[in-house]
């Protein structure tokens, strides 16, 4: 049995857990912890991932894809490198409606690029939100100058949208395999 993995990363509350839940064939194994009720994060959501999220897609008897979601809070970033080890590629989730998270998204992107030079895509999540920034504006805001890097419109709670992002990442991986060394 061969297992391969992809990592879903991004800032706090960018939709990583939702993304994995939308596509995983198993109930996502989440290490979510309730956010203290008196904290500001509690206004954003009730729980946050503290170690990782884990989802699975079984291709056949011989091949399984694991999806690992990283914890969003910086205090758990020691987990990132462990999760990144051996990854096929990664998705950087960005909440398009929250410019206050763009700087962190850029920093996370750079960090993961340093872990391993694997292909990646950026998912401009929450595109159904009225205040969402367009993917082309996000590209400039996140300083993604390389036009070969795909910046994709995404709604993490929509399975079709999630499939599209994962497929684009897989196409990028194929392109890299085909590229002259």
């Amino acid at each position: 049995m061969q297992t391969v993995k992809m990592v879903i990363t991004g800032p706090f509350s960018s939709g990583k857990t939702e993304f994995i839940k939308s596509i995983s064939e198993i109930e996502v194994v989440s290490t979510e912890s309730p956010i203290a009720k008196d904290s500001a994060e509690a206004l954003e959501k009730a729980n946050t991932t503290v170690a990782m999220d884990f989802g699975r897609i079984t291709v056949d008897d011989d091949l399984v894809l694991y999806l690992f979601g990283t914890p969003g809070q910086r205090r758990f970033d020691f987990m990132w490198e462990i999760l990144a080890e051996g990854m096929l590629g990664f998705v950087v989730m960005v909440d398009s409606s929250k410019p206050e998270t763009f700087r962190e998204a850029r920093s996370i992107l750079e960090t993961f690029r340093a872990y391993a030079p694997t292909p990646y895509v950026v998912a401009a999540n929450k595109q159904d939100h009225p205040d969402a920034w367009k993917p082309e504006d996000l590209r400039i805001a996140l300083r993604i100058e390389d036009e070969n890097v795909k910046l994709l419109s995404c709604v993490a709670k929509d399975k079709e949208s999630v499939k599209e992002v994962l497929l684009e990442l897989l196409y990028s991986i194929l392109e890299e395999m085909d590229a002259p060394k």
């Binding site: 061969q2 391969v4 091949l63 894809l65 990854m87 872990y115």
Partner: peptide
Amino acid sequence: QQPANTRIERDVIQRLIVKI
């Protein structure tokens, strides 16, 4: 790290694409 996908066959990616 070494890029993981150098160890992965092209066929694996194509099977993943079909599955997804």
